[in-house]
Design a protein around this nucleic acid. Structure first.
Length: 172
DNA sequence: AAAGTGATCATG
DNA sequence: ATGATCACTTTG
């Protein structure tokens, strides 16, 4: 089942674990579809989250974050890597879920390279029959939470949030 | 441990 | 126009 728009219209801290175990699907230029189960996500939540790109408000780059959920926010990181986020929630409130890993590709930069996602996918819809979508096969997974990575610049409070979600045994 | 890499954003 | 900053990966 292809996840519908409503699935994405909730807050990112809730959407991030909900995406675990779902299949990220990308139709390539050759017509072949690549499918991989999502194993690791992180959420970024609002202008008040000092780790979120939208912390400085709306700019040309962060504009997709302010759209209604169910579209892609892709940006270039460290000059090399395209990182793929799933925009969450309602319009005018910036929040998204970073896809950090799928089966067969750990790391957000490797994920996009493996799946063939790049900057041209920025703003693309996951629900309107484009080359990107997410499928649910009904499987549920246990997961572990952890702090987000690569956000040393954020406030201590925001660095401490357990907003990283990883498929695996729940922590004791 | 450290470099490689370039868009983005805040300055001037 | 310039410079600092990065939601990373690879190499040694």
């Amino acid at each position: 089942m292809i996840l519908p728009h409503d699935f994405y219209r909730r807050h990112a801290p809730e959407l991030a674990p909900a995406l675990l175990g779902k299949f990220l699907c990308v139709r390539g230029a050759d017509g072949q579809t690549r499918r991989a189960r999502i194993t690791e996500t992180e959420c970024y939540f609002g202008e008040g989250d000092t780790a979120c790109h939208a912390r400085a408000g709306k700019t040309p780059r962060t504009k997709p974050l302010y759209e209604s959920g169910g579209i892609a926010y892709v940006y270039l990181c460290y000059g090399i890597h395209c990182l793929l986020n799933v925009v969450a929630g309602e319009a005018d409130f910036p929040e998204a879920v970073l896809l950090r890993g799928v089966e067969g590709a750990r790391g957000p930069g490797r994920l996009t390279r493996a799946m063939g996602v790049d900057l041209s996918d920025n703003g693309a819809s996951f629900t309107e029959g484009g080359r990107l979508w997410v499928e649910d096969d009904g499987t549920r997974y246990r997961y572990t939470t952890a702090p987000r990575v690569g956000i040393d610049y954020a406030s201590a409070e925001d660095r401490a949030r357990l907003w990283r979600f990883i498929i695996g045994p729940a922590r004791p």
